[in-house]
Deep mutational scan, measured.
Amino acid sequence: LKKVVALYDYMPMNANDLQLRKGDEYFILEESNLPWWRARDKNGQEGYIPSNYVTEAE
């Protein structure tokens, strides 16, 4: 899975979204639905995130 790091905080707009915290790492599960990607956080929560809020992890 592709790993990304959040560049900004993101508060979910609806139940399908995943909250982002700046500096945290996330795994990308699906990239087909631009600009929204399906992601999983370190706690196993899954949801959609804005792809322009993250960058690929080193």
Score class of each variant (00 low, 15 high):
residue 40 R to Q: 08
residue 53 Y to I: 04
residue 8 Y to I: 08
residue 4 V to W: 07
residue 48 Y to S: 05
residue 14 N to V: 06
residue 43 N to Q: 10
residue 18 L to P: 01
residue 19 Q to H: 09
residue 46 E to Q: 05
residue 7 L to S: 04
residue 16 N to K: 11
residue 4 V to S: 02
residue 31 E to Q: 13
residue 42 K to M: 14
residue 1 L to Y: 12
residue 9 D to V: 02
residue 58 E to S: 14
residue 27 F to H: 08
residue 37 W to I: 14
residue 24 D to S: 08
residue 8 Y to V: 08
residue 54 V to F: 05
residue 49 I to T: 00
residue 36 W to K: 10
residue 55 T to P: 02
residue 14 N to S: 13
residue 24 D to Q: 13
residue 16 N to H: 13
residue 57 A to L: 14
residue 9 D to L: 02
residue 20 L to N: 00
residue 21 R to K: 14
residue 26 Y to F: 05
residue 28 I to M: 03
residue 53 Y to G: 05
residue 33 N to L: 12
residue 32 S to C: 12
residue 3 K to F: 06
residue 23 G to I: 00
residue 27 F to R: 04
residue 39 A to H: 01
residue 25 E to C: 12
residue 17 D to K: 08
residue 15 A to F: 10
residue 15 A to S: 12
residue 20 L to G: 01
residue 26 Y to G: 01
residue 31 E to K: 09
residue 40 R to Y: 05
residue 19 Q to I: 08
residue 2 K to H: 06
residue 19 Q to A: 14
residue 33 N to I: 11
residue 24 D to F: 09
residue 5 V to I: 14
residue 43 N to V: 08
residue 40 R to E: 04
residue 26 Y to P: 00
residue 29 L to I: 13
residue 12 P to M: 03
residue 6 A to H: 01
residue 8 Y to T: 06
residue 7 L to G: 02
residue 26 Y to A: 02
residue 33 N to C: 12
residue 27 F to Q: 06
residue 38 R to A: 04
residue 39 A to M: 04
residue 45 Q to L: 14
residue 10 Y to C: 04
residue 27 F to G: 03
residue 49 I to V: 08
residue 39 A to I: 06
residue 16 N to R: 11
residue 8 Y to W: 13
residue 31 E to W: 14
residue 25 E to K: 06
residue 49 I to R: 00
residue 17 D to Q: 15
residue 24 D to L: 08
residue 43 N to P: 02
residue 34 L to V: 10
residue 2 K to I: 08
residue 37 W to N: 04
residue 40 R to K: 10
residue 24 D to R: 06
residue 32 S to P: 10
residue 17 D to L: 12
residue 41 D to V: 00
residue 42 K to E: 08
residue 26 Y to K: 00
residue 21 R to T: 15
residue 4 V to I: 04
residue 5 V to G: 01
residue 24 D to A: 08
residue 34 L to Q: 13
residue 2 K to Y: 08
residue 48 Y to D: 06
residue 2 K to V: 05
residue 7 L to T: 05
residue 40 R to W: 06
residue 26 Y to C: 02
residue 17 D to S: 10
residue 56 E to P: 14
residue 3 K to Q: 06
residue 3 K to C: 08
residue 52 N to M: 12
residue 34 L to H: 15
residue 32 S to R: 07
residue 14 N to F: 11
residue 39 A to C: 06
residue 54 V to Y: 02
residue 37 W to T: 08
residue 39 A to G: 05
residue 54 V to R: 01
residue 24 D to T: 06
residue 10 Y to Q: 03
residue 8 Y to Q: 11
residue 28 I to Y: 01
residue 23 G to F: 04
residue 43 N to C: 11
